[in-house]
Amino acid sequence: MDTTVTETLIELATRLAAVSSHEDETAAGDEIEAWLCAETDADVRRDEVGNVIARNGAGERSLALVGHHDVVAPADEQVTDDGNYIVEACDGRLYGRGTADMKGAVAAAMLAFRDIDVAGTSSERTSSDDASLPGELVFASFVGEEVGGVGARHAIDEGFSPDYAIVGEGSTGYSSPGVTDVAVAHKGRRGSTITAHGSAAHASEPDAGENAIYRATDAVSLIRTLEAPTVEVAGESLEGSVVVTEIDGGTAMNVVPDRCDVTVDERTVPGERAAIERLEDLEGVEWTVDQDLPPMRCGDEAFAGGVLQTADSVQSGSPEFVTKPHATDAGWLAAAGTECVICGPAEPGEAHTADESVSVAVLERCYRIYRGAAENWLG
């Protein structure tokens, strides 16, 4: 790895990670937009919700390098006196909120986007002859990923529809420690509320009312009988789940309750869902979907295989196709028709922690994967 590239990557990742973006992503978006405008000749635009999207080249096909620059709320010890984040380098890692999830990957994708010579990937092309390019290279960093894909959904609604995308969420350490794998599927999440309605009465005369908690327990019993779906992806089983997580009902010890609310967490898998809609057949029970984050599965074996081949060529370990247990913006993109894979530096257990960190060596590796995969795709 060129030491200049390494130094630039560390500096950029550190600068991005230091900017507060758990409540307002504006300043982080400003940094990304300004860097892209200064360092590339791409068409860089900021949409009305704060997404930063840069485009280079032209053609019938498009490949996007995708990330997000919002983060979850930091721990107190991760914040400076001025409200930004503390970022420290130690033992080959960068420590700080957002280093793993996922400003480190955003920095690697930005640098790769800058360094990919779109016009020069074929000797028959020139920078002034966009019509001969095989496709468009896109960089996108979204807002609101941590709160349900706000930015990705807005971009899709406004016409963002690359044919292919490499999403830089974590895929390191899944098949074996330290290896950066390629995730070709992940679970989704559907969160819902069961509301059981009854009629209140004095507890001394329970038959005078209709106990909403009893109706809620009937719903819970039904939930426990549902079979969670399982699909086979990349040689392993991706298993869904359905679980009751909260219950709230009643107003007093001596009152038959007229309402009871139950929350349900459902992990969905591509193409299959538990038959939770059966709740609607129960008397006095209402089912409301509060959040539905889609799962993802890559259906283009050639694209996924190309990224895996590049990942294999830039590391000593042997990467594999893997699956992820949680939803990402790749789910929204896949639902809109984009073929996605996930490849990024974060390791299981690093994101959202008080000592969040990312390996500098793996950041460098991801830069090489993003650049190599895109150049191979363009070539």
Rank of each mutant, 00 (worst) to 15 (best):
M1P: 10
A13P: 07
R15H: 13
E25V: 11
R45I: 06
E48Y: 01
A64N: 00
P74C: 08
E77G: 08
L94P: 01
G96P: 06
M102R: 05
K103Y: 07
A105G: 15
V106K: 09
L111N: 12
F113A: 07
I116E: 01
D117I: 10
T121P: 06
E124L: 15
D129T: 08
D130I: 12
S132G: 14
P134N: 13
E136K: 01
E136R: 06
L137T: 02
I156M: 00
Y164D: 00
S171R: 09
T172C: 13
P177S: 14
V179H: 05
R190C: 13
G191D: 14
S199K: 03
E205P: 07
T225R: 15
A228P: 00
V231Y: 02
V233R: 13
L238T: 05
V242F: 04
C260E: 03
C260Q: 12
V264W: 08
A275E: 15
I276H: 05
E277S: 15
E277W: 02
L279T: 03
L282Q: 08
W287H: 13
T288W: 00
A302T: 13
Q309D: 15
G317E: 12
F321W: 02
K324Y: 06
G331L: 14
D355V: 05
E356S: 12
I369A: 03
R371K: 15
A373Q: 01
